[in-house]
Computed example of a mutant assay.
Amino acid sequence: MSEPAAHRRRPDAGARSVPGRCVRAVALAGAALGLALGAAPPAAAAEEPVAPSTRCQVTDPRLAELSGLVDVGDRVLAMVDGGDQAAVYVLDGACQVVDVVTAPLDPYDPEDLAVGPDGTVWLADTGDNNATRATVALLALRPDGTTGLYRMTFPDGPHDAEALLLAPDGTPYVVTKEVLGASHVYRPATALVDGGTVGLADVGTVTVTLTGTPGGPVGRAGQLLVTGGAVARDGSRLALRTYTDAYVWPLAGSDVPGALAGEPVRVALPAAPQGEAVSFTADGSALLVAGEGVPGDVTLVPVPATTAPSSAAAPADPSLPELLSDGSSGVSPVTAGLVAAAVATALVWIGGRLLRRRPAAGPPRNG
């Protein structure tokens, strides 16, 4: 997403961001939950239109930079892309904050949220607008109240990434955000090390093309920028979203690269100023999507049951000026430059307040 010229993050990966209005400001999260979960393709043509509906509207100013969601039934976990405190927000069916759980982790730029098979909440601290970070990280918030910080390095230099796909076997996949639509997929090359650093391996590419769907903060380029990911609770499907569209693939076992090598079903999303968050509903029948800005809708988007996408010729690769044009007023030079550079576990909280005290000292800052 774009970043105001007045806000710049320090290049060292372990630094805090400057508080304030920033589309890539530091977000945080933190809390371990107590129940385990149950049990380069061409762009796909959109299925027959389905009617999305607004589940609820976010009005709490603390969620003005909402960037990650996980639906766990009658509660939704949410994280924000701004602030100076690690926090996970618990929302009820009316999108009201009913609890906030904090942790002592000091992240740099978290972008996405997932819940693992053992009930651990994972945050992808992978944002890097200016491509300067030496490492990115995964933050683990475990059911027993402990936390973990797992640093990773890209094999080919820094990338900005906003999507996390957590396979049913617990393997994390990070999907980059690329202005020309060819996003790379990475997973840890070796076992993660708490407090240590491991390399990432490039295991595939996801290619999307211009769709014509309106929305997003950066003109037509928003149709190509991957801003979030999700895996269905039953492990049957996975999804990636851009500012304007969602792409859904069938998933067999935990073979995320194999799934992404197929052709997805594309679902046009309702126009939104800056849509970033995506989650499957707890029953896997639909997507929940949301974005930055309050008031902001949390929208239920049905997904066609079929996994066989319609065929359509892919449009020609666009030039950067074409991407940055939305057919009307266009995008400022500053925004254009930045773009080019660029569940059930929470239900245990219903019975009472699980806000934990912040320890005097925590794990080292991500770096």
Rank of each mutant, 00 (worst) to 15 (best):
L37T: 10
Q57P: 07
C56A: 07
V58Q: 00
G38P: 15
M79F: 08
G38Y: 09
L77Q: 02
L63S: 05
V72W: 04
V97C: 03
T59G: 13
G34H: 09
G68F: 01
V72T: 13
S67Q: 03
G93E: 11
A43K: 05
T54E: 11
L37V: 13
A78W: 00
V50Q: 14
T54S: 11
A45K: 04
D60I: 03
C56M: 04
V98F: 05
Y89C: 06
Q85M: 14
R55M: 10
P49H: 05
R55T: 13
P41Q: 15
V100M: 09
A86Y: 00
L35Y: 08
L37F: 06
C56L: 03
L77Y: 06
D84S: 13
D71K: 04
C95Q: 03
P49V: 03
A36R: 10
A43E: 12
L66R: 07
D92I: 03
D71R: 00
R55E: 11
Y89I: 09
A103S: 11
A36C: 09
V70D: 03
A43S: 14
T59A: 13
A86C: 00
Q96A: 15
R62A: 14
V80K: 05
D99V: 03
D71N: 01
G68Y: 06
E47F: 10
L66S: 08
T54K: 14
P42F: 10
P49C: 07
A87V: 11
A64D: 11
V72R: 08
G83V: 01
G83L: 03
V100F: 06
D92R: 07
E47C: 15
E65T: 14
A40F: 08
A39T: 14
D84P: 07
P42C: 13
V70W: 04
E65R: 13
G38Q: 12
V98E: 05
E48C: 12
A39L: 09
V70A: 08
L66E: 02
L33M: 09
A51N: 11
V100Y: 04
D81M: 01
D60R: 05
A39I: 09
G68R: 01
P52R: 08
V76C: 00
D92L: 03
V76A: 02
L66A: 05
G73Q: 02
G34M: 08
Y89T: 02
D84W: 03
L33Y: 05
T54Q: 13
